[in-house]
Nucleic acid binder design. Sequence first.
DNA 1: TGTGAACCTTGAGT
DNA 2: AACTCAAGGTTCA
Length: 332
Amino acid sequence: MKLRDAPSACPSLWRCLPCPPAELRLDLVLSSGQSFRWWESSPGAWTGVLEGRVWTLRQDGDRLWYTVYGEENEHGEEEERDGCPAKAARLDVVETDRILRDYFQLDVGLSGLYRAWAAADPLFRKVASDFPGVRVLRQDPVECLFSFICTSNNHISRITAMIERLCQAFGRRLCCLDSRPFHAFPALSALTGADAEARLRALGFGYRAKFVSGSARAIAEGLGTEGLCQLRTVPYAEARRVLCALPGVGAKVADCVCLLSLDKAEAVPVDTHVWHIARQRYGVALGGKSLTPRAYQEIGDFFRGLWGPRAGWAQAVLFCADLRKGQKPACS
DNA sequence: TGTGAACCTTGAGT
DNA sequence: AACTCAAGGTTCA
């Protein structure tokens, strides 16, 4: 199959949702380390896997366009006519609209939140004007958990490559676009095998191989995939406690999973960047020189006090800005 | 409670 | 061409 860049070539294969840039900036959100599975397949077009399907997304003014690729036959063939697939899988547009609205949490009004954070925090106001439309994704808990276990003491470029290899090795193959294969994120059961750790080590996961297979086992033998998803309905503190009991999951990874997949908008992941920002720019006074559990808690509490119940969302804006400091976004 | 070291690998910086 | 060092941390003394 061929990648699709833009609606103009085959308009019938695309749909759009109303969505102004102040509510969502696709480029900022999909490349700021919340999810590691999106790729800018051509300028302005983002291709990735969501809910077991391959999508290409594109923003054009106040519209968010999307197209979904069907699964290929066993030969990977697809008939074409005038450059368009002859029989593209009929989209269930109600379902795909819903998936996208849910993933981007489009029912949450972001511009109002920006106004409130800016009113409470001059530093936020200064940064946010250059980084509008940064919102928190609502990701699948399994994908989010295992992705962020891989982030510890690691670089984003390597994390992305590791997760790609994880999906290739353990995930279901979905389709091939311009001869590039796409795979679903593996199910929990795919990571519980006796040889999982060794395979992950061979894929360059290092010491995280044990954490990934260990957490997969622990969940499979404990709360299960359903139980993990049920953490969406329990209080933040409880979800955090459950997650921290898993191997390779400390306070920071637990907060990432809480914020990015379990609906805990108040969770503020404190990584080295946020710790630095808290001390240097907000002057948060802390006793020790290292990020102790107590300091971690205090920084989170400080930002929750400053930004309110969606502090994690505001943190995502600052984190995105910090990640891109030096390069101003082209405001198209 | 708090501190320090080890942990896999990679890529950017001397 | 080596070599050091940090990278969205966690675990164990």
